[in-house]
Design a protein around this nucleic acid. Structure first.
Length: 584
RNA sequence: GGGGACGUGGUGCAGCCUGGUUAGCACGCCGGUCUGUCAAACCGGUGGUCGCGGGUUCAAAUCCCGUCGUCCCCGCCA
């Protein structure tokens, strides 16, 4: 090693030692006679002192910030009044008598830790990582995966790798395709998840499998979605739903305890999908904001307010939630903003009233005063409370729109509630959902999920009512993981393929290998996949998973560092038998 | 596919709504003073075809259209 110590470890007890430090020059404070340098590496910062008597004095003059240097010298305690309490090495400094420039640096577009726009930060990612929060997040991420591996190992899990070059499947997200040179005109797909392989591993008798697996989905990006992302992928044999939930609770509790010393509840709360939607308007509720939604349909059954009345009379619903102590902030203008916001979700708008000086205040008071009085009493509203309400024919859309508004209000006006960790399970998901575009039922989780078998028969003419043995783990409003008990029986699997409109031929062409495997002794099994990027982002308190990934893509899927995706040569295309037509 | 925000010296921002001097501020960078600084301080200086293209106008950073890039959201994401 070129160094004897890192920049984060020297303390008073090291005083008198001769040390060699390496790192980046992060600050230069030249006081004329005496020069102070701050040397930085992954472990911390140490102040170097170069005096005119030092043989390194001339050398220190050449230095610029971000130069990589090696400095030798003696550790000395700092004079009492110059101790820097802000850094762990603040009680000592190293008097340098020998210095070597290992690598100079041009003036960077921005200094590590300095603010810069996202595209610049990504183009010079190494500067952004160096000494910045991303480096801290990568350390955190390492501790999460380490803790996860230790836990799963202790539970007899086997880490098994599965292929990245695999087969394109019809269900789910759009695949990334990789052309085959040996079989021209054919394509591999990068896996959306190792789903089928891990089930095959169960048939193989692996019994307990996990993998920190990269997954690929060619869909549009978001703050919490990248085209490639990492899952903690888990599958176990001979289990029921409860076994998986227990396992994951143990794992998540261990990770939080070890990584951030947070004690999560012994058992995580559970909410049915229906309750989650009704109370929070989301299948991934953030309960920290409170403001649970209430069904208000009955108050509008005989309403003289035509819009509400007609919605309710035609089988629609009214829902709303109370914003506590909000009447001072509420205004007609804000109400309009809320209305516009819920219109993005397909709702017509909102109505609202506040309780101010014991009176109901609302732009719609003249139409709905009676209803408002009844509602305020029934919900036991307090002085200063505001309630927002919406009417809509479709229950799910109504819940979703209001739920989105609830989150928006929470994030904008109740920021102080956004702390700590709200962990829960959402269970009892619908098995299928109707896809208007494709005009067929599609699997809500995935088509290998075990439906509640009695319901499969009972509701075969109303498949939307069938429930699945599926579960999601939600932390702070993010879907951190989801899983299910799987089908392990060819007949049921075929029945499900049939339900989602897959012909026998298609199902054999696409999933024949799975169906066949089920005929050779498939154990009952189930599992889960946890989004590692999201989990780490939540623990790190980051809004975007980009900040916990070393080299993330931009919202348009490009890598600013390398310039990917990019054109390839004619030769490469020819070898693959591919001709590119670019639309002008 | 749709909506919104942003793009101005190396960096972060102001100016734009209401067109009109030399485009302003902070940080950085360069030079100087300075032997206890720690975001060093102080003095002096450097640096911008206002993302790109077109249009309106006597005149465009400013108004209009298009385009590119980044971010957020809807759709999409089993």
């Amino acid at each position: 090693m070129l160094r004897t110590h890192t920049c984060g470890e020297l303390r008073l007890s090291d005083v008198g030692k001769r040390v060699v430090l390496t790192g980046w020059v992060s600050r230069i404070r030249d006081l004329g006679g005496i020069r102070f340098l701050v040397l930085r590496d992954r472990y911390g910062e140490t102040q170097l002192v170069v005096t005119p008597e030092s043989s390194a004095y001339e050398k220190a003059e050449e230095l610029g910030r971000e130069y990589v240097i090696k400095a030798s010298g003696e550790v000395k305690s700092r004079p009492q009044d110059t101790i820097n309490p802000k850094i762990p090495t603040g009680e000592i400094e190293v008097y340098v008598d020998e210095m070597e420039i290992l690598s100079p640096s041009k003036m960077p577009p921005f200094y590590p830790g300095e603010e810069a726009k996202d595209d610049l930060r990504l183009k010079y990612r190494y500067l952004d990582i160096r000494g910045g929060k991303v480096l801290k997040n990568l350390e955190l991420r390492h501790r999460v995966t380490k803790s996860t591996r230790e836990y799963l190992d202790s539970q007899n899990f086997l880490e098994v790798e599965t292929p990245y070059l695999t087969k394109s499947t019809p269900e789910g997200a759009r695949d990334f395709l990789v052309p085959s040179r040996l079989k021209k005109g054919n394509f591999y797909a990068l896996p959306q998840s190792p789903q089928l392989f891990k089930q095959i591993l169960m048939v193989s008798g692996v019994d307990r499998y996990y993998q920190i697996a990269r997954c690929f989905r060619d869909e549009d990006l978001r703050a919490d979605r990248q085209p490639e992302f990492t899952q903690i992928d888990i599958e176990m044999s001979f289990v029921e739903r409860e076994d998986i939930l227990n396992l994951v609770e143990g794992m998540i509790k261990k990770v939080f305890k070890e990584v951030v010393d947070v004690d999560l509840p012994e058992k995580f709360d559970r909410l049915s999908y229906e309750d989650a939607m009704n109370l929070y308007g989301s299948d991934k509720p953030d309960r920290r904001f409170g403001m649970e939604m209430k069904d208000l349909t009955e108050f509008f059954k005989n309403s003289s307010f035509k819009i509400a009345r007609s919605v309710v009379d035609n089988g629609g619903f009214a829902k709303g939630f109370v914003i506590p102590n909000f009447s001072e902030r509420m205004s007609r203008r804000l109400g309009d903003e809320f209305s516009n916001f819920v219109r993005e979700f397909g709702l017509g708008g909102i109505v609202w009233f506040s309780l101010k000086g014991g009176e109901i205040t609302s732009p719609t008071k003249k139409y709905l005063e009676k209803e408002y009085i009844d509602i305020s009493r029934s919900l036991d509203m307090k002085e200063g409370d505001v309630i927002v309400m919406a009417f809509h024919r479709d229950w799910e859309e109504l819940c979703t729109g209001l739920g989105a508004l609830r989150i928006k209000i929470g994030q904008e006006y109740f920021k102080h509630l956004e702390k700590g960790f709200d962990v829960l399970w959402v269970v009892d998901f619908p098995f299928l959902e109707w896809d208007d575009d494709e005009n067929r039922w599609v699997a809500r989780h995935h088509p290998f999920t075990m439906p509640v078998l009695e319901e499969l028969e009972k509701f075969k003419n109303d498949p939307g009512k069938i429930k699945a043995l599926a579960y999601d783990i939600i932390i702070n409003g993010y879907e951190v993981g989801g899983g299910s008990i799987r089908i392990h029986n060819r007949e049921i699997q075929e029945k499900v393929f049939d339900l989602i409109g897959l012909t026998k031929e298609e199902s054999i062409e696409k999933f024949g290998f799975l169906l066949e495997a089920f005929e050779y002794g498939a154990p009952p099994h189930g599992g889960i996949a946890l989004g590692l990027d999201r989990l780490v982002a939540i623990i790190a308190g980051e809004k975007s998973i980009r900040d916990v990934i070393a080299f993330p893509k931009t919202a348009s899927g490009t890598c600013q560092l390398t310039g990917a995706p990019s054109k390839v040569s004619e030769k490469q295309l020819k070898e693959l038998g591919i001709r590119v037509e670019v639309k002008e």
